[in-house]
Structures are given as C-alpha cells and as structure tokens.
Amino acid sequence: MLLVKLLDVIDIPYETHTAVQAADQTAKMAVSSLGQVLVAVIAAFFLAAALVSAAVYVSRRSKKSGQEA
C-alpha cells in the first residue's frame, strides 16, 4: 500500500500502478497464509501437549495404583 501511495505521489503510469497493486495483493496473501500456518503450528503444539500430558498422567496413576495393589 505504501508503494502504491508513493507511486500516486510521483505519478507513475497506470499499468505499472496496477502491477504493483497485484504484487501487493500476492504478498498479502502469502503473509496471511503464513500467519495461518504459524497459528496452526502453535495450536497443534498446545493440543498435542495436552494429549500427551493426559496420557502421562494416566500412565503414572496406573503405575502408582499398580504398586499400591
């Protein structure tokens, strides 16, 4: 967007202008999907950690109750 505004100021021909807008759009799409990927990786880590913690807790409890028995 900044580039487009800059081009407005220095009056670059229309074709070049739209090409820059398209490039801007592509970059935005790439950034947004990268953002989604990062959010998903973090969410997956938390979900996996919760599952693993639950399994570790259950296995420790079963070991303890086995020893008591």
Binding site: V37, V39, A40, V41, A43, A44, L47, A48, L51
Partner: peptide
Amino acid sequence: AGVLRMTGFFV
C-alpha cells in the same frame, strides 16, 4: 480450509 484444518494436520 484454514487454521482448523492446518492445526489438525500438525497434530
């Protein structure tokens, strides 16, 4: 498609 599907894939 989106964050939920990607999260599933990473899990």
